[in-house]
Design a binder for these strands. Structure first.
Length: 678
DNA sequence: AATGCAGCCATTTTT
DNA sequence: TGGCTGCATT
C-alpha cells in the first residue's frame, strides 16, 4: 500500500488525526487490533519531519521486531517519496542499543568489535561454567540457570544488584551468574539482555554520553509498548527526560510476551510517570468483518485485567466464524486442506490464507498433508536460517576471525572438521583460560608454547590457529563474502560435506551458498555479523502461491483474508504448562493470544479442535478449549461435528478448571510423568 | 580421539 | 515421537 505524498493526511479518522496533531509532550496511543496503528505512527514521523520540528536523525523510533522496523522504514520513505531518506535511529531496542554500545564500548568495558551471542551460546557458556564449578547439571539444569539470568537482566539486575534469597539454589545460580558476566567480559561479548542493560548502565554512569543523546533525540516513538520490559522502559525514560516528547503505542489486549519479561504495567502506568499525558484511543477496526470482530471482542471480554476498549467497525457482517471438531490431528489437517481445496482456493490467494497454531510442532501435521497433496506452503518461524548447524559453524569461523576472544565461536569449530582436538584438550584450554583469565585462543597459544599439548593434537591445533591468522590478514584485502569462500575451502568444511554424499549434506551445501549470496547485501563483515546476531531470520520469500503456517505469536502484526486456528484443546490451548506456571495470569495471556489469532482474519476464520492428538508419541484424549465456549454463540457456526455424541462428549463434561483438571488424556500424561520421577 | 549405541528428556511462545 | 547426552567400545 502506497499513499501518495499529497494526501497522506487524508482518510484519517478523527482519533487518528488527533494522534498526529498532538506532537509535543507525552502521548499514549491505545490502539486496538487493526485500528491503523502503524499508519498513525509513521504519519507522526512524517509530520515531525515535514513541520521541521526535527531532522530525521533526531527522531528515535523503537520497535519490538525487525519486521516492524522495516515496515515503518518503508512506509515513511513512501510517504516522503524519497527513497534515500532513512531514519538512522529507527530499529529494535536491541539494534539501537547495539549501535549505541559500539560507539561507546569502552565505557562499559568492551571493545567495539564485541560479539552479540544468542541463546544457544548463552547456554553453552553456562554449561561450561557449571562443568568448571562442578555443579551437578541434573540438580540445577543450565536451562533453569539461563531463565534466571535472563529474568534478572530484564529487571535490570547485574549480579551485584541481585538480592539472593536464602534458598541455596538461588545462591548457586547467582554464583553462576557472576562467573557468566565475568566470562562475557573476557570474551568481549554480550547477550541480548546486556545490550539494553549495559546501555542503561552506560547512561547512568556517564552523564556526558547521556547528554549527547538527550540533546539529540528530540522525539521518541515506541511501537508495541505493551511488550516492553522493565529495563527497556527505563532505557526510554532516561532518553526522554529532556524533551519529554515521547509517544508510545500499544494494546493491552495484545500483550502476549509476559513470559519474556514484558510488563504490561509499563503501558498501564504511562500516564502516571508522564504528567499531562495525552491519551488517545483508536477503536475503529478497519480489518475484520463484524462477525469476526464480535467473536474476538466477546472472547477478550472474559479477561478482567484490561483497560477496556470498544472496537467497532463499519464493515459488513460477513461469514460466521466456523467451528469444527475432528477425530484427530491428521483428520484436522485433512479437513482443513480439503476446505482450502474445495472452496477457499477459488476465492482467495493462498498467500492470504494462514494457519495459526499455539506451538510450532503443530505445523508438522499440516506440512505432511500439504506435501502429500502437493499444495505449496511456507513455515514462518521455526528453525531459522541462521540457526542451522552448518550456517552457525560457518559464521563461527567468521566470528573468531573478526574477534579473537570469541570463545563460543572457537569452541564450536575448533574440531570441525575433525582435527584430533577432543574433549580433554578443550577442557585443558578451558581450565587454563579460566585460571589466567584468557580466551581459549590465547590459552591454546600459551599451552603450545609451553609444550603442554600432545603431539598429534598439537599438529591440528597449530594448523588451524595459523589459518585463523591467515584469514585475518585476508580480511584486510578481500571482501567478506570472498573470505567466507576461502574459509569454507581452506578449513576443509566444504570438503567434509561433499564427502558425505547424502541428501542432507547436499542441502547444507546449498544453504552455505545461500549464505554467501546473502552476504553480498552487506558492506562489510561487521555489518553482516550485526545483522546475523540481531535479525536471526532471513527475509521470507513471499513469492509464489503458498499457504502460511506459523504460531500465533509470530502472527502478531500480520493480517490474512482467511485464518485457521486449529488445536483449540484444553492443555494445548490454553497451554497446560503456562497455566501451571502462572495460573490465572497465564490464562488471561492465553486468551489474549486467542484474541490476537482471531483478529488476524479479515474475511473468514475457522476454529477447530480434535478428540485425540498424538503428543510425545502418546495418544492423548482431549476436550474442547474453554475459549470455544466463550465465543458469542451468534457469531459462530458449528459444523462438521463428525461423530455422533461428540457434542455431548466434548462440551458437556463437568470440568473443574480450578482443580487443574483438564483433558483426561493430559491429566494421565501428567501422572505418568510423576511416576517416572519417583 | 572417534564412533556407536542406549537411555533419557522434553516441547509455548523469541528479540 | 525424535533429538540429545553420556557411556562403552575401538
Amino acid at each position: 500500500m502506497k499513499i501518495s505524498n499529497k494526501n497522506y493526511l487524508d482518510q484519517l479518522n478523527d482519533r487518528q488525526s488527533e494522534a498526529i496533531t498532538h506532537l509535543d509532550g507525552p502521548c499514549l496511543i491505545v490502539a486496538g487490533a487493526g485500528s491503523g496503528k502503524t499508519r498513525v505512527l509513521t504519519s507522526r514521523v512524517v509530520e515531525i519531519i515535514k513541520k521541521k520540528k526535527a531532522w530525521p536523525n533526531q527522531i528515535l523510533c523503537v520497535t519490538f521486531t525487525n519486521k516492524a522496523a522495516r515496515e515503518m522504514q518503508n512506509r515513511i520513505a513512501g510517504y516522503l517519496d524519497e527513497k534515500i531518506l532513512s531514519l538512522p535511529w529507527l530499529g529494535t531496542f536491541h539494534s539501537v542499543s547495539a549501535k549505541l554500545l559500539r560507539r561507546h564500548a569502552e565505557a562499559v568495558g568492551l571493545n567495539s568489535r564485541f560479539t552479540i551471542i544468542d541463546q544457544e551460546d548463552q547456554l553453552r557458556l553456562i554449561k561450561n561454567i557449571c562443568k568448571a564449578e562442578n555443579i551437578d547439571v541434573k540438580k540445577i539444569s543450565p536451562q533453569f540457570v539461563l531463565s534466571f539470568i535472563n529474568q534478572w537482566k530484564n529487571k535490570g539486575l547485574l549480579p551485584k544488584n541481585v538480592v539472593a534469597k536464602k534458598i541455596p539454589l538461588e545462591k548457586a545460580i547467582l554464583n553462576v551468574y557472576k562467573f557468566y558476566q565475568e566470562r562475557l567480559k573476557i570474551l568481549n561479548s554480550c547477550d541480548f539482555g546486556d545490550l539494553i542493560l549495559l546501555c542503561v548502565n552506560m547512561f547512568e554512569n556517564n552523564s556526558d554520553i547521556l547528554d549527547l543523546y538527550l540533546n539529540n533525540f528530540k522525539y521518541i516513538l515506541v511501537d508495541e509498548y505493551q511488550d516492553s520490559n522493565f529495563i527497556q522502559s527505563k532505557w526510554l525514560n532516561l532518553l526522554a527526560k529532556k524533551h519529554n516528547n515521547i509517544c508510545c503505542v500499544g494494546d493491552d489486549d495484545q500483550s502476549i510476551y509476559s513470559w519474556r519479561g514484558a510488563e504490561i504495567k509499563n503501558f498501564l502506568d504511562f500516564s502516571k510517570i508522564y504528567k499531562d499525558t495525552k491519551v488517545i484511543k483508536l477503536e475503529q477496526n478497519y480489518r475484520s468483518t463484524q462477525n469476526i470482530l464480535s467473536a474476538a471482542s466477546g472472547l477478550i471480554a472474559n479477561n478482567n485485567d484490561r483497560l477496556g476498549k470498544k472496537l467497532w467497525t463499519d464493515s459488513k457482517e460477513g461469514e460466521l466464524v466456523k467451528l469444527s471438531c475432528y477425530k484427530n490431528g491428521k483428520e484436522e489437517a485433512v479437513g482443513i486442506s480439503d476446505t482450502i481445496e474445495q472452496s477457499l482456493k477459488k476465492k482467495y490467494s493462498l498467500n492470504k490464507i494462514s494457519i495459526l497454531v499455539r506451538a510450532i510442532f503443530q505445523t508438522r501435521e499440516f506440512e505432511e498433508r500439504f506435501l502429500k497433496i502437493g499444495m505449496g506452503y511456507r513455515v514462518i518461524g521455526g528453525t531459522k536460517f541462521y540457526e542451522r548447524a552448518e550456517v552457525k559453524d560457518s559464521l563461527s569461523f567468521l566470528r573468531i576471525v573478526y574477534q579473537k576472544n570469541d570463545d563460543l565461536a572457537f569452541e564450536r569449530i575448533i574440531n570441525v572438521p575433525k582435527r584430533a582436538i577432543g574433549d580433554s584438550t578443550i577442557k585443558q584450554l578451558h581450565d587454563w583460560g579460566r585460571k589466567n583469565k584468557k580466551s581459549l585462543e590465547d590459552s591454546a597459544l600459551e599451552l603450545i608454547q609451553l609444550n603442554k599439548i600432545k603431539p598429534k593434537t598439537k599438529l591440528g591445533l597449530v594448523k588451524i590457529l595459523n589459518l585463523f591468522n591467515k584469514w585475518r590478514s585476508d580480511l584486510k584485502e578481500k571482501k567478506h563474502y570472498e573470505l567466507m569462500e576461502i574459509i569454507l575451502d581452506e578449513s576443509g568444511y566444504s570438503k567434509m560435506l561433499k564427502e558425505k554424499k547424502d541428501l542432507e549434506s547436499e542441502g547444507r551445501l546449498e544453504n552455505l551458498k545461500e549464505l554467501i549470496r546473502g552476504m553480498h547485501d552487506f558492506d562489510n563483515l561487521q555489518s553482516f555479523l550485526e545483522h546475523v546476531a540481531l535479525a536471526t531470520s532471513i527475509d521470507q520469500d513471499w513469492n509464489g502461491e503458498k499457504i502460511n503456517l506459523m504460531t500465533m505469536h509470530a502472527a502478531k502484526g500480520l493480517e490474512f483474508d482467511v485464518v485457521f486456528l486449529p488445536g483449540w484443546e484444553e492443555g494445548l490451548f490454553p497451554h497446560q504448562k503456562s497455566l501451571e506456571e502462572k495460573g490465572d495470569l497465564a490464562l488471561e495471556e492465553e486468551r489474549r493470544l486467542a484474541y490476537v489469532g482471531l483478529t488476524r482474519a479479515k474475511k473468514e476464520s475457522f476454529i477447530s479442535f480434535v478428540m485425540s492428538r498424538m503428543y510425545r508419541g502418546d495418544w492423548v484424549e482431549s476436550i474442547a478449549s474453554r475459549f470455544i465456549e466463550e465465543l458469542p454463540e451468534k457469531n459462530v457456526k458449528r459444523n462438521e461435528l463428525r461423530e455422533q455424541n461428540v457434542e455431548d462428549f466434548i462440551f458437556n463434561q463437568d470440568i473443574d478448571y480450578d482443580q487443574g483438571v483438564r483433558s483426561p488424556g493430559w491429566a494421565r500424561l501428567q501422572k505418568k510423568k510423576l511416576k517416572r520421577i519417583k
